[in-house]
Design a protein around this nucleic acid. Structure first.
Lengths: 219, 219
DNA sequence: ATATAAATTTAAGTGAGCTTAAATATTAAA
DNA sequence: TTTAATATTTAAGCTCACTTAAATTTATAT
């Protein structure tokens, strides 16, 4: 039995909205690896507590209270990731899970001090923007999933989804890192997989993998 | 309803043995601020899991498995305290509670890296020894509670109990810090309170407070 | 438009870790 | 050594965040 807290629901909703746009209970369930029924349960509570707007079978939306709460969790998460990676030199693919735990165990005051110590970083090691104390995200150029690029498009890798360490390990082994220049050599209609060229070699990626790698496109 | 985990029980038992010698269920209950009945409950579980030796109405003892576990938690706690104090400059009296949360949310691997980053500190900010990776405590001169000293005894403050932030704040305001030289000017039979002299001034302390300050005595 | 599939909610039930109140064992005092 | 006080354990019950299974609503495909 997992013991996912309200905090996790709020972060998950926040992130899913960013990625998927609309938020469905099933998506949350998948994301947190719990049953859909548990999600329904919790949505009712979050609604009563004023964190989400929720109508049965209808949409889910963070209230401004919920939004604030979620952004703060995300902030903690990304600052901890940065600390683990930059300061402690922990491996890329392990910091997400570790930060996931730490974010629930640190006060705002602690995290503010941590931010100061890290010298106010703007992006975490996976390329995600870090909200500041007041919840504002740093300005950054728009990014687009690699799976959405077309043949001959070029750009640099700006972000790689961090929720699956397997993906990160794989990316590293293929030489795909944040900041790396890439171009799309080919895109298969058949299964949506793409062949891309990095500075050092060529890599073929499935559509699913490509959809978790985000590019800052050259214009 | 508090959600104290097994980890807390084991740390508490470990610390109480160090301080009080014998371990009574009631003491654990007080320490964790839960009912004695909850302690009985948990002791049974810890016993089944092989962390403590426990016989109804008889003593409580950590098994070597429980001991190992507890020392590891203490290690995490003290390293986090050191980090919060030295690296993040958090105030003395706040780091205990903060570390209490972090210790449950960090893997052994993370804490080993943290130790390395901190350059293998031997004592935490309150003067407690930090166990190394294999569970060994650094060698250190014996300490004795200030309440046990007699008139004209001299020594230096080696350790101050960290479980009550109020005590730490008070100590700081009185100029009592780790490493400070002190001597006992007077000790009242009446209530056990002591009058001590520091480098800068004279302070009167109740017996209770004096029993939470530990001295490395001059011989 | 209707049948089928998929998503969501409801209902009933579980285990962990607590609570209070009552019962029992141990310790201390008369 | 009996009695009273204190400590500990048992018993019953609560809440939380889950689960599975069944019921219901919504979406999709023919």
């Amino acid at each position: 039995m997992k013991n996912i807290s309200k905090e996790d629901y709020l972060s998950a909703i926040y992130k899913l909205r960013d990625e998927a746009g609309e938020i469905k209970p099933n998506l949350i369930a998948e994301n947190l690896e719990i049953s859909p029924a548990a999600v329904t349960d919790m949505l009712k509570k979050l609604s009563v507590d004023g964190f989400v707007q929720y109508k049965k079978y209808k949409g889910i939306k963070l209230t401004s209270k919920g939004e604030k709460y979620a952004v703060n969790m995300i902030r903690k998460h990304r600052l901890w990731e940065t600390f683990l990676y930059k300061t402690l030199n922990m491996p890329w693919e392990k910091i997400h899970d570790e930060a996931e735990k730490l974010e629930h165990s640190s006060s705002d005051e602690l995290v503010d001090k941590l931010e100061e110590f890290l010298n106010y970083p703007k992006f975490d090691p996976h390329g995600y923007p870090i909200p500041d104390k007041s919840g504002l995200l740093p300005k950054h150029k728009p990014v687009i999933a690699l799976s959405e690029l077309n043949k001959n498009d070029k750009g640099i890798i700006a972000r790689i989804s961090d929720f699956k360490s397997e993906l990160l390990l794989y990316a590293t082994r293929q030489g795909l890192t944040i900041g790396q220049k890439i171009s799309v050599k080919e895109k298969l209609e058949f299964d949506g997989s793409v062949l891309i060229k990095t500075s050092s070699n060529e890599v073929s990626l499935s559509k699913k993998i490509a959809s978790n790698i985000f590019i800052q496109k050259d214009d």
